[in-house]
Amino acid sequence: MNILGISISPSDHGFCFLRDGAVQSAVQNISFSAGSFEVSLQQAGIVLGDVDLLAVCDKPILQWQRIMKASLSQVPEGSMMFLKEALPWIRRHAWMKKTFGPKSAFHGEVLFVGRHQSLVAAAFSQSNLSDAAFLTFDTGVELVTSCFGVGALDDFCVQAEQYYPHSLELFCSAFMPVTGVVRGDVNHFLGLASKGKADYADLLFAEFMDLKEDGSFRLDMNCFNYRNGLTVSSTGLSRLIGCFNDNAEISARDLARSVQIVAETILSRTLKYLYYISGKSRLCILGSGTSHCLGGDTVWENSAFDEVSVEESGNGAVGAALFVWQQYLRQQSIKSLPVGSEI
């Protein structure tokens, strides 16, 4: 059984070829268009005609729901954002079956796997942990921004979720431009944070979010807006400026450190709650950029879990392919067994 896993989200795009459950090749950061994609496959020695199943990381309808939610919450300003996001969505997903349809050599089945399921499957396969709790963080490409649950690679279930735009990663990255750091330049942000004091942590907790004891939180959306990703709004800035010192550089350092403290607090509380609710001693975490924002492993080391595996970046394509192999096909084979057969 040959499975081709692909991921076409803007932050994570690549493919993975799985033959009978073993990863044959995995490529990340390739451009996804009908022509170039087939060329990349050929370079990796994959013949599209040999592929039995195509596993796509991301569920298009959940992405669409996220786009609608974000756009409708900011009418009329959100209409431009809607066009900006909806058109690439249509380009990426609506014609997918055509891309791999009758004209191409692929004649198998296309399956869409949830982003977080893919990430969890990828994280489990990398960590080799079984019977463990898992926790994922994401920017909310697919509505869900974080989730946790228990299980192993071949059988896990999501227990609870948090939804867009209440994302830890978005929260951290929203403050990067405020501190003078280019969005995504995590090292620069960590460098600032290492020199600062957490003077604004209380302000962030009080004015920017409502954090619960179990690590779940709601961002006060008056302080943020969605344009060009989640950014701090003018209301949020005015709340910050009210507490800024005269020396802007020191304030930026302190703000970076404060954001780091907030992230650490959220993660510490979540881990405590997860340990309590899951009853597992092992933990598998996947969150691109989250651990960067923490700038150290103190949170994981101080948690009650005996063994913690942290995967900073997930390969959605590998996860989708593994998920289909480990769970979908297994369940299909169980279904096809005669009634009363031992599994």
Binding site: K59, P60, I61, H93, M96, K97, V110, L111, F112, V113, G114, Q117, F148, C157, V158, Q159, A160, E161, Q162, Y163, H166, D210, K212, D214, S216, F217, R218, F323, V324, Q327, Y328
Partner: peptide, 18 residues
């Protein structure tokens, strides 16, 4: 603020077509 998933929702999350 964690949304606990019901059994049906968990099944919905499992796998589906577009």
């Amino acid at each position: 603020y964690w949304t606990t998933l019901s059994d049906t929702e968990r099944m919905y999350r499992t796998l589906y077509r577009p």
